[in-house]
Write a protein that binds this DNA or RNA. Structure first.
Lengths: 226, 226
DNA sequence: GTCAATATTGACATTTTCGCCAATCTTAGG
DNA sequence: CCTAAGATTGGCGAAAATGTCAATATTGAC
């Protein structure tokens, strides 16, 4: 019931396949739409009922009968997996800093995007928090972070001590900031300040950290459409 | 179902009343024992089923009938509150650094105790993680931390910037370390290293941070009995 | 517009959970 | 040891959730 193992997402996140298999059956258009409705409704329900959610809850929220639900998911466990996978993919997407060479700038941009998205979409933020708190869930919030850290260390861009603790510290800062955003007790500039603080933790000078954060804040990426 | 508001714990945590009301009815001895069994079983079930747990689950785990369960708790929600309260109290207890003047030493001792307890008791760690991820749950992992930070700043013992971010950073480090401990991927000396890192984040010199952590690690408190 | 393919429905049997309670067993003060 | 207070039981009816399916409605390629 509570497993939510989404190891399979890793190969997606790694970039192997984000494309849809493109199966064109008769009602593929409606099918896709309904699936989206179910996932979306599932996220909302998961966000405020936790894993104790009910198939009927989701179906009702999606405006669909339970029979339809079972046309898409074999059982409750399966949609929980799908929801975790979905959230993780969105995280990977939000945290993407492709094309940015400098690890520090990449970190600033990616982190700011994640935090802004968390602020805009409280549902997503709450689901994410739920995943973080489930050790062994397969969701790895700090994957990008780990790579950036390794990269930054290799290039001498970051100046920090033992890796694991730094990782926990920065990932923890992000998680707690998301928590604060989700509960609505965050200052308006919380995301940017968190970025500055994170950069400092990675060994970047405070003045430069501020500069990087401001820069990342100014060239905001286009908002996600869906 | 998912609320778990445990605001009432705060007055307990604040030290007003940790004592049991001492009602001596006929079967008070057995009653206490059964209650402990239910709480203990509840923690175990909560740790691996999450809030979706069932009264039957708990009763079975406690080796008791459901009828007995309802003799102690009005409904599922009530035991969830009790479990949250229990865990929070244990946290407050583990994080107690009473009698230690220096905020830095107090932080080192308290944090080390919490992390060690999390390592010894995976169930507790997992329940705690669940509470952390529920914004507005009333459980405030960083209460002691906030006080220590304020105290340390007032005395010039800590040298840090904006409070909220530092708090998130240090609390986040602790949370992520607990997560690592709970999933079993923590190095043996993870608690001590986390303490060092936390002290550094608070502005303590690394050399001194190491010293404080070592000191805290050596004068370990007697293990909790229950 | 037609119609075969396919998505949706809602009622269903089944299982699980809930919360209760009269009967029974256990506890501890005397 | 006795015995009444009170803790425990286990089964109950109600309610809710699960997963299925034959019937129905909708879709979109032609």
């Amino acid at each position: 019931m509570s497993i939510l193992t989404i190891a399979p997402i890793l190969k997606y996140v790694a970039g192997v396949a984000t494309e849809t298999p493109e199966v064109r059956t008769r009602g593929y258009r409606k099918k896709e739409r309904t699936r989206r409705q179910l996932i979306s409704a599932g996220l909302r329900v998961l966000a405020d009922k936790g894993q104790g959610l009910t198939v009927s809850d989701i179906a009702a929220e999606a405006g669909v009968s339970t029979g339809t639900f079972y046309n898409y998911f074999a059982d409750r466990r399966e949609i929980l997996e799908a929801l975790a996978e979905h959230s993780a993919l969105e995280l990977a997407e939000a945290a993407a800093g492709e094309g940015i060479e400098d690890p520090a700038r990449r970190f600033a941009t990616a982190t700011l995007q994640v935090l802004r998205r968390a602020r805009e979409d409280g549902t997503w933020a709450r689901v994410l928090l739920g995943l973080v708190s489930r050790p062994g869930s397969g969701v790895d919030l700090s994957r990008h972070l780990r790579e950036d850290l390794a990269d930054g260390l290799a290039r001498g861009r970051f100046d920090v001590g033992p890796e694991d603790e730094v990782l926990d510290q920065v990932a923890g800062l992000i998680v707690m900031t998301i928590r604060r955003l989700a509960e609505g007790t965050a200052a308006p500039d919380a995301p940017q300040r968190a970025v500055v603080r994170g950069l400092c933790a990675l060994g970047v000078e405070e003045a430069e950290a501020r500069e990087l954060a401001t820069e990342a804040a100014s060239d905001r990426r286009p908002d996600r459409s869906a």
